[in-house]
Design a protein around this nucleic acid. Structure first.
Lengths: 186, 186
DNA sequence: ACCCGCATGTAAGTCGTTACATGATTCT
DNA sequence: AGAATCATGTAACGACTTACATGCGGGT
């Protein structure tokens, strides 16, 4: 059982889904948090089923290929709870952009500023995207989203975190540009 | 050439180092950003040398095993600059704790609060650690650390980012606890 | 005609972690 | 005596990415 399996379990514990659905949900909702390709999903679902943590029904379709819709079993929900409460493994950030800034002293003239400016713009775009998703979620689930025991509350909190994180990145870029500007006025 | 190779190049572009030195520097300085085991380092250094991006001298020692001290070549620094300015690959966060909170609606009673409280404490500890490292760095390199073209400036900026990030995490935990407390008063 | 979305899979290759392997010196 | 630090490597395994593979229906 790896982290990916728990991510999938977390989704099918909310609502039964097919492998294809899971692929889209992982891309759209959990995407920035834990991206997965469909080639990982299908074997993982088979493994969950072998372990008794999920079960599937075949839904036959005439106009499209049949779907295998997976749902979490009681044992699956139990395993998910246990994983959540287990000691965190302390996985690292692995931030490629920061690793690049670590060597930005090699750049000349305004190259460092350009690099950071480009990143600032990318982050601003993804911030706007998260904010859009969150406000759509809020509009759609007005009452439920504030209840602490609701799946929607958890979704919203994760999005809030992503938003905080992007804001932070923007602030860091702005401050770095300011500091670079002082020492080296173009 | 993978990301790890550039991380190593970034270090030996600052100052020649052995594989063992690199292991420690990656653990102590770049650690939270891009952790590496020594088993990755030695083959990667050999590959850098095959590509002409680094070269090593053997430093013989009597009391300890001999060291292979690697330095970046001009081609190595050039490759590093090119990588820094290349399009970012947009690698993801892969945050296991957030993935867990995504399913926290499964928990009962105060379990969610306990989970977040534990994480808050862990983050507070690593914040203190980063702050300590940064203030030590500042004390040691007073003049150089503010010059935008200095390696120390880059190191400090990366640490600043890590600090911002931890503060953010703390704020998020506090807010989440507040929201959980309102809906479900123990 | 060609590409996109739906739908499910397998295979090959890279990256990263953990364990295996060796051997001297220094600290407890 | 046993553990930790210095110092360099190899091997096995697991996780992740990218490409291969198939096939129908709808849009341009």
């Amino acid at each position: 059982m790896n982290t990916l399996s728990y991510a999938l379990l977390g989704l099918i514990a909310r609502k039964p889904l097919s492998g294809y659905d899971l692929m889209r949900q992982m891309r759209e909702r959990v995407g920035p948090l834990w991206p997965v390709g469909h080639s990982q999903i299908y074997p993982a679902l088979a493994a969950l089923e072998r372990g008794g943590l999920a079960r599937h029904n075949v839904v036959e379709q005439t106009e499209r290929p049949d779907r295998k819709v997976y749902a979490a079993t009681a044992a699956g929900r139990q395993a998910l709870r246990a994983w959540i409460q287990a000691e965190a493994s302390g996985r690292p950030l692995r931030d490629e952009f920061l690793l690049k800034t670590y060597s930005m002293w090699l750049l000349r003239g305004g190259e460092a500023q350009e690099l950071i400016e480009r990143e600032r713009e990318r982050r601003a775009r993804s911030l706007a995207e998260y904010e859009g998703t969150l406000s759509r979620l809020r509009d759609e689930w007005k009452g439920e989203i504030d209840r602490g025991d609701s799946p929607l509350f958890a979704s919203a909190r994760v999005l809030e975190y992503a938003i905080l994180h992007e804001r932070d990145y923007l602030a860091w870029c702005a401050e770095t540009l300011r500091l670079l500007g002082r020492g080296d006025p173009s």
